[in-house]
């Protein structure tokens, strides 16, 4: 493999995703603004008084919710990460790319670079909005850096699931049905909106099996409690993410091999 060629390919393919996003102004606005507006501001303000401080163990609901919204953004971006490849597959663009002498992984890597960069930027914007509403992360900038790393690791596995689906489904209708079926339960069956202790027993069991819960439980103390509480949670989350990513990448690679040959 020629490193210089590889860089040239991946850069050009990544720039294509950036160009597309910048030309889809409406889509960009909604992808970027929707999670903050809908979840953080509306949901956060709506439940501010309904939430019991004793149960959420946070100074207010908005600061409790911030960690959840950060991880939800990773979830949505990750699960949608394969959509553009799906359209490329359907309209023949992917085949055109694959008929050129590029390394077979270039397209995938470009997509990863793009999704992860956009997600990172969104996380920073969400934390800034939360900051305006008075949420001050206890662990400061180093804590934010840790959040970005955790978000990135979660995003790697999710994007792999999305791309595997994009390469396997027969039509994009199937893709979006599965996506819709996955994303909301993943959110409600996690600690994103309420702590596990506030859930009925059966939901707690399901939420504990959801990797998203563990990721949120690592991000949240970074925002509301501080390093002492956060470090063990972060360690557990990293372990779970290593396993999660390994599984997803294995499945993704198989789907890719089957589709590309």
């Amino acid at each position: 493999m020629n490193v210089h060629h590889y860089r040239q390919e991946v850069l050009a393919l990544t720039m294509r995703w950036v160009r597309r996003l910048s030309r889809e102004k409406f889509s960009m606005l909604f992808t970027l603004v929707q999670p903050m507006l809908f979840w953080l501001i509306f949901f956060g303000s709506l439940f501010q008084r309904a939430a019991d401080i004793q149960i959420i163990q946070a100074p207010n609901y908005m600061s409790f919710l911030a960690g959840g919204v950060v991880v939800m953004t990773v979830l949505n971006n990750g699960l949608a990460g394969g959509v553009d490849l799906l359209f490329d597959k359907e309209n023949g663009f992917l085949e055109r790319l694959m008929s050129t002498p590029i390394h077979r992984t270039s397209v995938i890597v470009s997509r990863y670079l793009f999704v992860i960069t956009i997600t990172g930027m969104q996380i920073l914007v969400i934390l800034s909005i939360a900051f305006i509403f008075g949420v001050r992360p206890e662990t400061g900038l180093p804590g934010i850096a840790v959040m970005l790393v955790i978000g990135m690791l979660f995003g790697v596995g999710l994007t792999a699931i999305s791309m595997a689906m994009a390469f396997s489904v027969k039509s994009h209708g199937d893709f979006f049905s599965v996506l819709g079926f996955l994303s909301l339960p993943m959110i409600f069956l996690s600690s994103a909106l309420v702590p596990l202790s506030a859930m009925p027993g059966w939901m707690q069991v399901l939420a504990l099996m959801n990797p998203m819960t563990w990721v949120i439980d690592a991000v949240r103390p970074l925002i509301i409690t501080g390093w002492d509480a956060a470090i063990p949670q972060v360690a557990i989350a990293l372990g779970i993410l290593a396993l999660f990513d390994a599984l997803c990448l294995y499945g993704g690679t198989r789907a890719f091999r089957r589709a590309i040959g």
Binding site: R20, R23, N91, G92, F93, E95, R96
Partner: peptide, 13 residues
């Protein structure tokens, strides 16, 4: 060189 059957064109480029 390859010229595909579908209009394999990215409408945003």
């Amino acid at each position: 060189g390859y010229v595909p059957q579908e209009r394999a064109i990215d409408r945003f480029l």
